[in-house]
Every structure is written in structure tokens, then in C-alpha cells.
């Protein structure tokens, strides 16, 4: 360079990368090591083990590590098990759609109609409070609600809306769906309300000034902008519903068997390989569902 003066020391020696330099550059990784190791040992290894065991040979009383496809064949050739797969998917779809349909208006109210931050927080906390009761007890609380002598039937009869109690309410797929929707709908409301509350009000005002109707504004602005919230909510709900078994066993009187229930039963009777097959199938479904949902919106960019 032409403009070096006497003030500027010459020198081209590159400083050696000594040990301290290494630590200063890579010390960061040390912070991550405990968490990563924990997750690999107790998350990746168990899941890998599940895949591995699904190919083991299962006999009535024991299991051996000889690899076989037998458990897989049994699963897909059995009406009971394949039926459970279809039932799981069906209930998941019902719950997903219902949590969205039921939850969206509430989220719309919290995120768009109420523009006061304090009131928004109060409403959201109100929705979250039931979570302070044990999940299992909340599920059980549906029994006196839905039963033949349950609260709903009593109320409907009092108001003269029905003559005979509705029996289909409890110990059916319907009761399972009702229970799940109530338990998981908040996971849909939260993220959507969050995204709706972030929408810049001037955007909507501008659209209104341009003469857009309320419906057009909703369709063209509000809904697209809330979509990342819908996707996050849908992921939450899907993950929880697909792995569900407690609600089904509490509210269906063991008549509705989901994949989760089968896993529990199989583990109970020490049929590890078979439980593992179902576990792998659930994992695959889950992966497909989440990837599919993530295709709708680029979350990293949207959030």
C-alpha cells in the first residue's frame, strides 16, 4: 500500500493460532455440549432403538435380536391394527379441523377485536388456567359431563330440548373427539392470536380506506398473515393428538383403540417388537404431517 507512513509499523507476520485463540473461537461449542449429549443419549438413541427393535423377532414370551419383518407384516395384515391406524388418522383429522374451526374465532376476537394488550393477556391467561389441573383429571371430568346422567343431558332435558338422554355422548369416538378438542384447542388459539395481534393496524385501515369489505380484508390480509400461527397450532395439536392414548382410554370405555393405546397394551404384554413397529409408523406419520404443514408457510421467515 502506498499510504503507509512512518507511524505505521510494517510487519506481515501472521499471529500463531495458540491454544487461547482456539478457546476464544470455539469455547462457544462447550456450552452446547451438555445439551447435545443429553438429547443424543436420551432422545436420538431411544428413537433409534425403537426403529431397530421393530425388526426383532417376537415370540409370545420372549424377544430376540434376530432381524425379521414379521412384526411389520403382522401389523399390515391385521384388520384390528390397520383399523386402529385409520381410526387414529380419522380422529386426528376431526380434532385438527375442529380445533381450528372452534379456535379461530376466539383467536380473532383476542388478537384483532381486542387491541388492548392487558385485556389480551387476561383472556389468554383465562384460557390457560385449566392447564393448571392435571391433564388426566381434566379428561376424567368429561365423564360426568357427557354420561347418560351427565350434566349435558340433564341440562338439555331441563330445557325440554330432548326427551330421552343422548347415549352417544359418552364411550364413543364422539366423546374422545370432544375431550381432545377441549384439551388441545388452546394450543391452536394461542399461536393464531399471537400472529393476529402482530398485524399492523394501519394495514387494515389502509385496506378499508381503499374500500375493501370486511370479508375481503379478512380473506386477503388477516387470514394470510395469521397462517404461520395456524401452522404452529396445527403442529402442536397434531403432535399431541397422534400420540394420544389417555383420552381414548378414559372417554371411550376402551372401545376406541388408537395407535397409542395399542402401544400401551403391547408394552403391557411385553410385545416390544410390535410396540416398536407402531412407534415407527407413528413417527413416520408425524414426520409427514409436520413436513407437510411446514410446506404451507416458511416459518423461519414468517416468525
Amino acid at each position: 500500500m502506498a499510504d503507509s507512513t512512518a507511524d505505521m509499523a510494517a510487519g506481515t507476520a501472521h499471529a500463531a493460532r495458540d491454544g487461547r485463540g482456539f478457546l476464544a473461537r470455539h469455547g462457544n461449542y462447550l456450552l452446547l455440549v451438555p445439551g447435545v449429549i443429553w438429547m443424543i443419549l436420551f432422545l436420538v438413541v431411544p428413537l433409534g432403538m425403537m426403529v431397530y427393535v421393530s425388526f426383532w423377532t417376537q415370540t409370545t414370551f420372549s424377544i430376540s435380536s434376530d432381524l425379521t419383518l414379521q412384526s411389520w407384516i403382522t401389523f399390515f395384515s391385521s384388520d384390528t391394527y390397520f383399523g386402529a391406524l385409520l381410526r387414529t388418522l380419522k380422529i386426528w383429522l376431526y380434532v385438527l379441523v375442529l380445533t381450528f374451526v372452534i379456535g379461530y374465532p376466539t383467536a380473532l376476537f383476542i388478537g384483532q377485536v381486542v387491541r388492548n394488550k392487558t385485556v389480551q393477556t387476561v383472556l389468554l391467561v383465562t384460557c390457560v388456567i385449566p392447564f393448571w389441573t392435571s391433564f388426566l383429571i381434566r379428561v376424567l371430568a368429561w365423564r360426568p359431563m357427557l354420561g347418560v346422567e351427565g350434566a349435558i343431558n340433564i341440562l338439555l332435558q331441563k330445557f325440554g330440548l330432548i326427551a330421552e338422554p343422548i347415549e352417544v355422548l359418552l364411550f364413543t369416538e364422539l366423546s374422545v373427539v370432544i375431550g381432545m378438542v377441549q384439551i388441545y384447542v388452546v394450543f391452536m388459539v394461542g399461536p393464531i392470536a399471537f400472529m393476529l395481534a402482530r398485524i399492523d393496524e394501519s394495514l387494515i385501515e389502509a385496506a378499508r380506506d381503499l374500500g375493501a369489505s370486511t370479508w375481503t380484508i379478512f380473506r386477503k390480509i388477516i387470514f394470510p398473515l395469521s397462517l404461520p400461527g395456524v401452522v404452529v397450532g396445527a403442529i402442536f395439536v397434531s403432535v399431541m393428538v397422534l400420540g394420544e392414548f389417555a383420552t381414548a382410554s378414559a372417554l371411550s370405555g376402551r372401545k376406541v383403540n388408537l395407535l397409542g393405546n395399542i402401544i400401551v397394551t403391547q408394552v403391557g404384554s411385553l410385545k416390544w417388537a410390535f410396540a416398536a413397529v407402531i412407534g415407527v409408523i407413528l413417527t413416520v406419520i408425524m414426520a409427514v404431517v409436520i413436513t407437510g404443514l411446514l410446506r404451507i408457510v416458511n416459518l423461519r421467515r414468517a416468525l
Partner: peptide, 15 residues
């Protein structure tokens, strides 16, 4: 790359 020194000590990579 390059070198920073303080009173003759190399501090390029010193925290």
C-alpha cells in the same frame, strides 16, 4: 490474520 501486540506481548488472541 495479522498481529496485535501490547508493549511487545502478542495479544492477538488474548481474551
Amino acid at each position: 490474520s495479522g498481529r496485535i501486540s501490547l508493549d511487545g506481548d502478542d495479544i492477538t488472541f488474548r481474551p
